[in-house]
Simulated scan of single mutants.
Amino acid sequence: MIAVTTATAATAGRLKCAPHRPRAIWSVVTVLVVGALGAGAWYAYTAAQLFSGSMSVPCEKATRFAAAQPLPASARNSECRHGQWLGIHYEAEFRIPREDFEAWLRASYPTAPSPHSCTPLADLCADIDMPADNTPPDSKGIVRRHLADTAKINAWTLPDGSLRVELSAYTV
């Protein structure tokens, strides 16, 4: 049997549901909208950091990408960033005593030319082109690019005799 209800002038246009139901529906809708807006804002913030190159990363990850040795224990005030637009790039900035810098540079890039003076840009500069085969093949024999194609190192002498070093590594 089908029940037919007729709307009266007093009930026309009103929903026939319990008084708490519309509030519950609006609460769920509000939570979903706020959650979607929050997720969108988080994604936009993360993407902006990535595209601008200001996303903080551990310095071990940056030096590994640059095919360099980990920073020595004497390195201080280290900050490392990651970015990606048309290519991938990592940047590391740190302070280090000159002797430790030279030892780290030789251990990281034994075949690279010695750093040269490049004023007014920096006191010492080194441009390192990575060999094309710097990424070993995986277990299936496929070479997946995980390392930089080029690394640039600029160093400035500080008043205390130590160096402020910027390492920039990227894919081409």
Rank of each mutant, 00 (worst) to 15 (best):
I2G: 07
I2N: 12
A3N: 13
V4Q: 06
V4M: 12
V4C: 11
A7N: 12
T8M: 09
A9V: 11
A12F: 09
R14Q: 14
L15V: 07
K16M: 15
A18G: 10
P19Y: 02
H20F: 14
P22Y: 05
P22A: 06
P22N: 05
A24I: 08
A24L: 15
A24Q: 13
W26M: 13
S27W: 13
S27C: 10
S27D: 08
S27Q: 14
V28D: 13
V28L: 15
V29K: 02
T30S: 14
V31Q: 10
G38N: 07
G38R: 03
A39F: 12
W42L: 14
Y43D: 14
A44I: 03
Y45A: 08
T46M: 14
A47F: 09
Q49P: 01
Q49H: 06
F51P: 05
F51N: 14
S52A: 04
G53K: 07
S54A: 04
M55T: 11
M55W: 06
S56C: 03
S56K: 05
V57F: 00
V57Y: 00
P58S: 11
P58Q: 08
P58T: 08
C59H: 08
C59G: 04
E60F: 02
E60P: 03
T63I: 09
R64D: 15
F65W: 00
A68L: 04
Q69M: 08
P72S: 04
A73V: 11
S74Q: 11
S74K: 00
A75I: 04
A75V: 03
R76V: 10
R76Y: 09
S78M: 05
S78K: 05
E79Q: 10
R81T: 15
Q84A: 08
W85A: 09
L86S: 09
G87R: 07
I88G: 02
E91D: 04
E91W: 01
A92E: 00
F94S: 01
R95H: 13
R98Q: 06
E99Y: 04
D100L: 02
A103P: 07
R106D: 05
R106C: 03
A107S: 11
S108W: 00
S108Y: 00
P113H: 09
P115M: 03
H116A: 14
H116V: 15
H116I: 15
S117W: 06
S117K: 11
C118Y: 01
T119P: 07
A122Y: 00
A122K: 02
L124H: 05
C125S: 03
A126M: 04
A126H: 03
D127G: 04
D127P: 00
I128G: 03
D129Q: 13
D129Y: 06
M130L: 13
P131E: 09
A132G: 13
D133H: 04
N134L: 08
T135F: 03
D138Q: 01
S139F: 06
K140P: 06
R144K: 14
R144Y: 15
R145K: 15
R145D: 14
H146T: 11
H146P: 06
A148W: 00
I153S: 04
I153G: 01
A155V: 05
W156G: 01
T157L: 12
L158E: 15
D160F: 07
D160A: 03
G161S: 06
V165E: 01
L167T: 10
A169H: 02
Y170C: 05
Y170L: 10
Y170R: 11
